[in-house]
Amino acid sequence: MLDKLDPVALLTAAGPILIAFVTGWFAWVAGKKKASTEAQVAITSGFEVLIRKLQEERTELTKIIDRQATALDRQADKIDGLEAEVRGLQRHIDRLEKAMRDANVDVPALPNRG
Score class of each variant (00 low, 15 high):
Met1Lys: 06
Leu2Arg: 08
Leu2Val: 09
Asp3Gln: 12
Asp3Val: 12
Lys4Arg: 15
Leu5Gly: 02
Asp6Lys: 14
Pro7Phe: 06
Pro7Ile: 11
Ala9Pro: 03
Leu11Gln: 09
Ala13Ile: 04
Gly15Cys: 06
Pro16Ala: 09
Pro16His: 04
Ile17His: 05
Leu18Tyr: 01
Leu18Val: 11
Ala20Gln: 01
Ala20His: 01
Phe21Tyr: 13
Val22Ala: 13
Thr23Glu: 01
Trp25Ala: 14
Phe26Gly: 07
Trp28Cys: 03
Val29Phe: 11
Ala30Ile: 07
Gly31Trp: 02
Gly31Cys: 06
Lys33Phe: 08
Lys33Leu: 12
Lys34Trp: 15
Ala35Pro: 01
Ser36Arg: 11
Ser36Gln: 10
Thr37Pro: 00
Thr37Phe: 09
Glu38Gly: 11
Ala39Lys: 12
Ala39Glu: 08
Gln40His: 07
Val41Ala: 13
Val41Asp: 03
Ala42Ile: 08
Ser45Pro: 00
Gly46Lys: 01
Phe47Asp: 01
Phe47Leu: 15
Glu48Thr: 10
Val49Tyr: 04
Val49Gln: 02
Val49Thr: 06
Gln55Val: 10
Gln55Pro: 00
Glu56Ala: 10
Glu57Thr: 12
Glu57Gly: 05
Glu57Pro: 00
Glu60Arg: 15
Glu60Pro: 00
Glu60Thr: 10
Leu61Thr: 13
Lys63Thr: 05
Ile65Thr: 10
Ile65Lys: 15
Asp66His: 04
Gln68Leu: 15
Gln68Cys: 04
Thr70Phe: 07
Thr70Ala: 15
Asp73Tyr: 04
Asp73Pro: 00
Asp73Ile: 06
Arg74Leu: 14
Gln75Tyr: 04
Ala76Asp: 03
Ala76Lys: 13
Ala76Leu: 12
Lys78Pro: 00
Ile79Trp: 02
Gly81Gln: 10
Gly81Asn: 14
Leu82Ser: 07
Ala84His: 06
Glu85Val: 06
Glu85Ala: 15
Val86Ser: 03
Leu89His: 05
Leu89Lys: 13
Gln90Tyr: 03
Gln90Thr: 06
Gln90Ile: 07
Gln90Lys: 14
Gln90Met: 11
Gln90His: 05
His92Lys: 14
Leu96Ala: 12
Glu97Met: 02
Glu97Gln: 13
Met100Cys: 03
Met100Lys: 06
Met100Leu: 15
Asp102Lys: 06
Asp102Glu: 10
Asn104Arg: 14
Asn104Ser: 14
Val105Thr: 09
Asp106Pro: 04
Val107Tyr: 02
Pro108Asn: 04
Leu110Met: 11
Asn112Tyr: 12
Asn112Trp: 08
Arg113Glu: 07
Arg113Phe: 11
